[in-house]
Amino acid sequence: MATPPGSAPTEPPPPAPGHLSKREVWWRDHHVWLRERGYMLRPRYRPQWVPSWSSGQRQYYECEDGQRLQHGQLIDATRVADGAVVVLKQVLRTEHPYEVEIAQFLTSEHLLSDPKNHCVPIYEVLQAPDDGNIQVLVMPLLREFYDPRFLTVGEAVEFCRQTFEGLQFIHEQHVAHRDISELNIMMDPQPLFPQLFHFVRQWQNRDLTGTARYSTRTRHPVKYSFIDFGHSRKYDPSAGPPRARPIWGGDRSVPEFHKSLEPCDPFPTDIYYMGNVVRAALLQEYRGLEFLQPLIDDMVQDEPANRPTIQQVVCRFELLRGSLSTWRLRSRLAKRDEDWLVRSFRVIAHVFRTVLYVLTFRPALPVP
């Protein structure tokens, strides 16, 4: 039956738990090739897979192989050579023609040693054997930067330091990211989660037999990374001021994009993106970071020309960071929505943790 005029098309129902989605099928069909290249997928994506819940003893959602990919272009794998867990990302040349080139450039050997480089490393690029349009990026397993939550002012300040310097590094290479958002800044989870976690159900361990155990950023400092360079572009400084047509990414609040679709300088837009991440993920979530407010307000101004450059952001931030005492950095970050009972337990836990960190000489600023 035809869809009535003016009505939205009906979404196809999701496949049954024992069936793979269209994108999952692609990974299953390339399992042998990936294994030959040194990467082993989980049992769900092996050609002869039989659902482990078929016996009826468990429900599909209790089983490791019952977890469907949330983002079909991304999948986890085990590197056969050393057992490391990596992430494979499917990239279509026709959709993102510059992603592989820019990602490889930013993590090339001569740039990787720069301490300001916070771009996700690219271990390898695989070319699909049956489709010249498809490439597969091999990257480390990462996790959303805000999970688990920040516990101290020092932990939040270190996140800002790394990401501001990371964006400074990207801009120094004459690259505009053009899609910075809470989804495109991640962290290396290995220090916090020594046993890691399941790729789909990240609050559980890898075999879904229990909760994923984790530490704190102060005890085990982490490194943050920018990911997803699908919208990024590299500009030639000798060609004059860079100009690019607006492109909508994860953050759709960019003021200049709502005013005009004419080409504009993408570098001030990156400043807005970065400031908006800090505003949404830190300032609006926690109390105790008010000293960052003037800087972030300048970064998210409506008029791009009034925003500071990333060099100015880093300089102003370093002055702020230098003004904070050790005890201020160790102070607790309180969630804005926590009730009095939760607050009571968290205050007690924070006092005990702080005493332990002081006695064991853990720095208040957790630099990895």
Rank of each mutant, 00 (worst) to 15 (best):
P4W: 12
P9D: 12
T10H: 09
E11C: 06
P12S: 12
P14E: 12
P17V: 05
G18P: 04
L20Q: 05
S21T: 13
S21V: 03
W27E: 12
W27C: 07
H31P: 07
V32C: 08
W33C: 02
E36N: 15
G38Y: 03
P43R: 10
P47H: 15
W49V: 10
S54K: 15
E62V: 00
E62I: 00
E62L: 04
C63T: 05
D65R: 01
G66F: 05
Q70F: 08
I75W: 07
I75D: 09
T78N: 11
R79G: 04
L88V: 00
V91E: 09
E95L: 12
P97C: 07
E99T: 01
V100R: 07
Q104G: 10
F105I: 03
L106H: 10
T107H: 15
S108P: 06
E109C: 04
L111M: 06
P121F: 10
I122D: 08
Y123R: 12
A128R: 03
I134Y: 05
Q135R: 13
L142V: 10
L142I: 08
R143Q: 14
Y146W: 12
D147V: 11
R149Y: 09
E158G: 03
E158R: 03
G166F: 06
F169Y: 06
F169A: 02
I170S: 07
H171L: 01
H171V: 04
Q173R: 05
Q173K: 08
I180D: 07
S181I: 02
E182H: 09
L183N: 15
N184T: 02
M187K: 08
Q195C: 10
L196D: 09
Q202L: 06
Q204V: 02
L208K: 08
L208S: 12
G210T: 07
T211S: 14
A212L: 10
S215Q: 00
T216N: 04
T216M: 04
R217C: 06
F229M: 11
R233A: 15
R233N: 12
K234I: 03
P237T: 13
P241H: 11
I247K: 13
W248R: 14
W248D: 15
G249Y: 12
G250A: 09
G250W: 11
D251N: 14
P255C: 03
F257K: 04
E262I: 07
C264P: 00
D265A: 05
D265T: 01
T269S: 03
D270G: 02
D270W: 03
D270Q: 00
I271P: 00
M274P: 01
M274H: 14
V277N: 05
R279E: 12
A280T: 12
Q284H: 09
R287H: 15
G288S: 09
L289N: 05
L289F: 01
E290H: 02
F291E: 11
Q293G: 02
Q301S: 11
D302I: 00
P304M: 06
P304Y: 05
T309H: 02
Q312H: 13
Q312A: 13
V313I: 10
R316Q: 15
F317M: 07
E318P: 02
L319T: 15
R321P: 04
G322M: 06
R330I: 06
S331M: 04
S331R: 00
S331D: 10
R332M: 07
R332F: 03
L333K: 03
E338S: 05
D339C: 04
F345E: 15
Y357C: 08
V358H: 03
T360K: 10
A364D: 13
P366T: 10
P368F: 07
